[in-house]
C-alpha cells in the first residue's frame, strides 16, 4: 500500500539569478491525495514542470516507480503515467470535446487505434459528466467545462499520478463543489493525486497530507490540521486570522 511512486530528490532549479526550487525533496505514496500549497511565486508550478519534463532541473533527480526519469520529455512523462492539468487550460480548440479526450487516450493512454481511443474517450466523458457536450467544439465550453475537459483528457491517459494545477481557480462555489466530487471519484480509483491549490476549503477536505512551499523550499509537511497550526505556515502563507478560524474549527470539530 505505502510504496513510493514518485519522488523528488534534492531538486534545484535556477532561472538566472532566481532560485525557483531550492534543494527540495519529497515523496508521494501510491494512492494518496497530497496538496501542495504556498504563496504566489513559491515555485509550485515550476515543481510540476520539473516532475513532468517541461524543465530539466539544474540539479537533483526525479524518480518514478523507482526509475530515474529526470531527463524525460513531456510526452514520455505522459506515456509513463504522469499526467497533469494546466493552470491555464490547454484544449485543442477546434476539435470536439470527444476528440480532445481521445487525443489523451490515443497518445498518452496507448490506445491501439483511433477508434479504440474514441471509445475510451466516451467512457471518460461519461465518468466526468461531460457526455452531453461530446460533439461540441472544445472552445464552446465554459471555463468550468474546460477545466473538467482537462481532467477527462488526463484521465484518458490512464495516469498513475495525476497533478492538478489549480483546477478550481476561477470557478464559483457550486462549480468547485462539482469539481471536488469528481476529484474524489478519481481518487477512489486508486490514482495518486497531487493538487496545487489556493483554496484552503479544497485542501482541508481533500488532502491526506499537505506540502507547503515557500521561496522554493519545503517549509512544512503534515496532515491538514497540523499544517494550519504550524507557525511557519501561518506566517508565510495563511495569516493569523485564517489560522484562528480553521484552528478553532479543528479544535471544536
Amino acid at each position: 500500500m505505502s510504496t513510493t511512486i514518485l519522488a523528488a530528490e534534492r531538486l534545484n532549479q535556477r532561472f538566472g539569478g532566481i532560485q525557483a526550487i531550492d534543494d527540495l525533496s519529497f515523496a508521494l505514496k501510491e494512492g494518496e491525495v497530497v496538496a501542495l500549497i504556498g504563496p504566489n511565486g513559491a515555485g509550485k508550478t515550476t515543481l510540476v514542470n520539473l516532475l513532468t519534463g517541461v524543465h530539466q532541473p539544474t540539479s537533483g533527480r526525479v524518480r518514478f516507480e523507482g526509475v530515474d526519469v529526470t531527463s524525460q520529455k513531456p510526452y514520455q512523462a505522459a506515456r509513463r503515467g504522469l499526467a497533469r492539468t494546466f493552470q491555464i487550460v490547454q484544449p485543442f480548440p477546434r476539435m470536439t470535446v470527444l476528440e480532445n479526450v481521445a487525443a489523451g487516450a490515443l497518445f498518452g493512454g496507448a490506445s491501439p487505434s483511433v477508434a479504440a481511443a474514441m471509445d475510451t474517450a466516451r467512457e471518460q466523458l461519461e465518468f466526468m459528466e461531460l457526455a452531453q457536450f461530446a460533439d461540441r467544439p472544445a472552445s464552446a465550453l465554459t471555463l468550468a467545462g474546460r477545466k473538467r475537459l482537462e481532467l477527462a483528457k488526463s484521465m484518458a491517459m490512464r495516469p498513475k499520478v495525476l497533478m492538478l494545477d489549480e483546477v478550481n481557480a476561477g470557478l464559483n462555489s457550486s462549480e468547485i463543489d462539482g469539481a471536488l466530487r469528481l476529484i474524489r471519484k478519481i481518487a477512489e480509483r486508486g490514482i495518486t493525486i497531487l493538487v496545487i491549490e489556493h483554496l484552503m476549503k479544497v485542501v482541508m477536505s481533500l488532502a491526506e497530507r499537505v506540502l507547503v512551499l515557500h521561496h522554493g523550499q519545503l517549509i512544512a509537511e503534515g496532515g491538514p490540521k497540523e499544517i494550519v497550526r504550524n507557525s511557519k505556515v501561518v506566517e508565510a502563507y495563511l495569516g493569523q486570522k485564517f489560522a484562528d478560524r480553521f484552528g478553532g474549527e479543528a479544535a471544536n470539530g
Binding site: 510526452y75 505522459a78 490547454q90 477546434r94 487525443a103 497518445f107
Partner: peptide, 13 residues
C-alpha cells in the same frame, strides 16, 4: 492546434 498540449498528452512532436 496546440503544440505544447500535444506534447503533454503524449505526442512525440
Amino acid at each position: 492546434q496546440n503544440e505544447d498540449a500535444a506534447n503533454m498528452v503524449g505526442v512525440n512532436n
